[in-house]
């Protein structure tokens, strides 16, 4: 039962962070929300008993992808849309 409740919470958090990525107009906030979504996805992988994939997802998705998105936003503009 506790496993079921934990997995339900993780899936709700995944949906909420994935909606926040689309909802934010500030691109750095969207990149950080994408990192949070990836971290929650790695927790879901751990709950499904795949610790290998969880470690790879946490390292690549939450750390490296966020850093590369932030560098790319630094080279372009911060707000969404054309000016």
């Amino acid at each position: 039962m506790i496993y079921f409740i934990l997995q339900l919470l993780v899936l709700f958090g995944l949906v909420i962070t994935a909606a926040a990525v689309i909802w934010f107009k500030d691109l750095i906030s969207a990149a950080i929300a994408l990192g949070a979504s990836s971290l929650i996805l790695s927790l879901q992988f751990y709950l499904l008993r795949a610790p290998d994939v969880a470690i790879a997802e946490a390292a690549v998705g939450a750390a490296l992808t966020t850093a590369i998105f932030i560098f790319a936003i630094r080279a372009s503009q911060r707000e969404e849309g054309y000016k």
């Binding site: 290998d52 470690i55 390292a59 490296l64």
Partner: peptide, 21 residues
Amino acid sequence: TPGGGFQGGAVVASSTALLII
């Protein structure tokens, strides 16, 4: 243990990202 070359390499590279940022 769970892990391996790709996972460990990604974790070490995330420390590089921390230092650069």
